[in-house]
Design a protein around this nucleic acid. Sequence first.
DNA 1: CTTAGGG
DNA 2: CCCTAAG
Length: 707
Amino acid sequence: MDLIGYQVPTKRRANRPARRGATFHRRVEDKQICPFDLLAAVAGNLLQEKENPSSSSDRSSEKDQNAFVNEECQNANKPFKVELSDEETCDRRFQHEFVKEECQDANKSVKAELSDKGSSDRNCCLKELPHPEIDGNSNIASIVTISGCLERLVAETLVDEKNHNELEKPTCNVDFGSSGCPKISGFKLDDDVSNVKDGLNKFEKVPCGTRSEKCCLEDPLDEKPPAPITSSGIAKLSGCDDSMPRSSLSKGCDNVPVVSSRDDDENFSGCAHPDAKTKPFRQMIRIGDQRIRKTLASKYCKGAQEKKHDTLSSSVLDGNLKPVYSGMKNCYKLIRSESNIPFKKRKLFNCSSVSNSDGFIRSGGTCYSHANVKNRGVSSFPRMHKVAGPGMSSLEARQHSALRSKDSHVKFRIKSFRVPELFIEIPETATIGSLKRSVMEAVTAALGGGLRVGVILQGKKVRDDSKTLLQTGISHDNQRDALGFTLEPNYSQSLPPVCAADSLHIRSADKPQPLIRHPSSPAVIHQRIQGCSCMLPEHQATSLGNLVAGGHDSIPSPISTSVEKSLADSRALVTVPEMGMEARTLLRTNRKSKRSEIAQRRIRRPFSVDEVEALVQAVEKLGTGRWRDVKLHAFDHAKHRTYVDLKDKWKTLVHTARISPQQRRGEPVPQQLLDRVLTTHAYWSQQQTKATAAQATNLPSPLIKGT
DNA sequence: CTTAGGG
DNA sequence: CCCTAAG
């Protein structure tokens, strides 16, 4: 479940369903909307829709219009308006809560300390954003999201061990951000570690997926200090919205179905209490994504289904997990977490998604690690790597954690890089084997395509490779908070591995639901299966079971595992991005860096000789101006080959045929074929000319004829 | 949505 | 491959 990374919206074209999506994205980008906001908005919409199903369609368009407009809530009139005054706010709050829980035993006064900050922050509102895709698309076949797309690496800087505070700081600092609240120090968990551990222990047992949430808190880079969850805060929250669909977002501490509606206030507040919090919080954390998904799902599913979800989630989560916590925060948080990708979380995602066979187990481990991290995270980083455990997939690149020394050296620890998200679209009728192969291809392509590392500082990409760290400003502590690494795919991939069979569309039963997972990519939408909601439980359970139980045996290939997971995931809740997929990785340290997102281009798939042959044959028959027909005749099954692609290929073939063999690159095309290309091209060109001439001649006037 | 072309 | 203008 956690596998899902964020999804980055991709631009799509022709076959690609998603031009609109692209537009959407652009808008987002243009507006500089932050992914989180977007996510929040989406969540909000979903929720809203849930509440007002009838209006959803109408609204969608409306949303479209308004959508990203606001960095603030412009839609005051909207029934469901949630605003996020501050992205960070949410996080803070979230963290804050977290902290509280953790610290409560210890009697830490985090709350108090943080409180001042908090007042303003508390309002976490989701803006209403449009999620165009949601409305529109629905029929997407089964797309599997293999992995989270972005992997972010976070560089952690460690402080000297000497200074305990320092150690803690990294985490805290990050969280708090440059804003630098001294208060953060209050955060120290060291003392409390033991207590925390207890909590963590539970945590550890939990399935990995859920855990990721925790990471958020830890994520040094992204997170800000939690806002105090003081009563006022709570009040605010509730205040946020009457309209706010908290219910959907949050579930009470109890098992109330997410769907349930607005009774959250109580729950919410309840959560606030330390007692309740602890559990709730954790649960919530774990549930994280699931929760969200559930929520979304819930919209579509009514009543009974909801229960299932809950059940599911609980079962999945170990039973202990209850959907707790109140919603907005959670949702938001979740959203954010993904977007922010606390590295820890990412890690989880990575493991699950990308990792191999033991993926799950592994991820479990990861989670574990998270837990550990948490404990230590606060206290000491060193352990982090432990978490990774032996089998991290190749995908993960671990690095050293860094301690900043006083000397001029800057050390970084990169927990892991994630493999860009992979999307696979495959017919439902495809075999598991083909699915595995597809995944393999996708992964291979992704890895083989080349990745590059990007450095992000203070939310900005550092493009000048010649600058020194010092010049860049990385040498300072404060800097580290803002330092991030990204793995940037050189290409985007959309795998049509199973292209042979076109993807089938989702059955009637399924309804796609769009979710936005990835904040950074504004328009990521996932599709969910309506029926799915019901199914979710099963799927999840199944998936988990499989993972847990079967993990290894079924592990033929790492990829397969991940795929399966993802599959399960997708089924469960997940949404699948509509279109293409993008793979990209992004890391950003500061919250604002989210924007950095890149639309990726489709993966390059050189034409095989067979394809060229088919193309030539089709063109010989149909001519050069009928690419759509050519596509239909010869590449109807190859989803990844659009008529534009065919046209382009023909263009290049003609060019290739005209140049000397020495100048040709790539897989050599039989000269014979090239000859046919030239012949065909010449023939059709002539035909075209003739036709034109004839037209001119016949229709207009003799004048042209003369010419 | 298709074509046609330039990038 | 992508992006766009045009039809």
